[in-house]
Design a protein around this nucleic acid. Sequence first.
DNA 1: TTATAAACATGCACTGCTGTATGTATAATT
DNA 2: AATTATACATACAGCAGTGCATGTTTATAA
Lengths: 204, 204
Amino acid sequence: MVRRTKEDALETRSELLDAAERLFSEKGVTNTSMMQVAEAAGVTRGAIYHHFKNKLDLIESLMERVRLPVDEMRGCGEQVDDNPLHEIVCRSKQFIHQVENDPNTQALVSILFHKCEYIDDVLPIKVHHLRGRNECIEEVQQLFVKAIKQGRLPDSVDPRSAVLGLFGLIDGLMYNWLLDPSFFSLTGEANIAIKRYLTGLEQG
Amino acid sequence: MVRRTKEDALETRSELLDAAERLFSEKGVTNTSMMQVAEAAGVTRGAIYHHFKNKLDLIESLMERVRLPVDEMRGCGEQVDDNPLHEIVCRSKQFIHQVENDPNTQALVSILFHKCEYIDDVLPIKVHHLRGRNECIEEVQQLFVKAIKQGRLPDSVDPRSAVLGLFGLIDGLMYNWLLDPSFFSLTGEANIAIKRYLTGLEQG
DNA sequence: TTATAAACATGCACTGCTGTATGTATAATT
DNA sequence: AATTATACATACAGCAGTGCATGTTTATAA
């Protein structure tokens, strides 16, 4: 009803993003209208179109705002030893833990996996998703290279192949877990599966 | 423009389903209108609403029509020996091969993974997806049980955990491959990764 | 052979959503 | 203190899509 200060405006914008994130993850992106987002944020559609050009711009801003764990997980805090395999495990666990425990992260990943359609119009989502993923893949691949050089993995292991399998495993577990979180424990199964996969890597 | 015989009607229905499958996998489910489906099939919207109640009914029919490889892959043709692990590998390969090579299967899986939103309204999709998956999981889990009994896998392996990891791996690889098929060879990477995962299972 | 019903085509009314234009009150600027 | 720009609210026009009702033609059954 009134205009407020600049900080208040930023808060409005933030609340709009929060509402969008919630509604998108609950009802899907295309099934959520701008008016519903506005209502959920306690404002009118005018507010949205002031802060964002359109729905796509809103989505892009959502992607910009959240730093996905895929992005975060470069550099894994307590990295005591110089074993790249340990860092790979640590990063993976941290990633999965954040998805299972941080509501914001979970909502966004849920949107990416199950609540949006990868069509041309929402290309920014796909682009953002792939970019972060590819950067992360590149880094983990280097860790595998390092592990092979250190003799922790046999030479017969192709680092690219190793990282593709690992990411497939993690993504697949998250995908299925998000379909029905009560079906199994993400952290539990992921830890076991990753361990097994790495064990398989260590053998020829 | 005219009415034809019963067989022709079934063909019309089939062409509508073909068109829907194509358009859905290309442009997404919600972004494809009934009129576009009708046009692509060379008929008008009236034809669709004659054969299908609405868009959801159309989608349900799509799911009914195609037997996903997940459903098919029970009983793996040339099963010479009695090694359940071999059957597991055989089924997985068959599944993946069908996704990579059969256009119909690929289109439908692409829809399930990337071109629809799992909201309440499209619950039939989710239900169908999960039902087929769960049935298959159950069967493969029994194969793991058998393998453990035969001493081909250590007792420490939990069959449920084993199958969850395997399905996660396969789903994740397919998910990522469908995002960008040129990024890697699905069959190639899947074979390697599955082999590694099973190797990891054989170790404690 | 006639009647009925199937297999569509056509047209209409309704709705939800979008984008924008305009209004308005307040903060920020001078 | 006056002006300007910001941060929204409100109002309007317009479309795209849906669902249905109603034609129209032909198979099919009696």
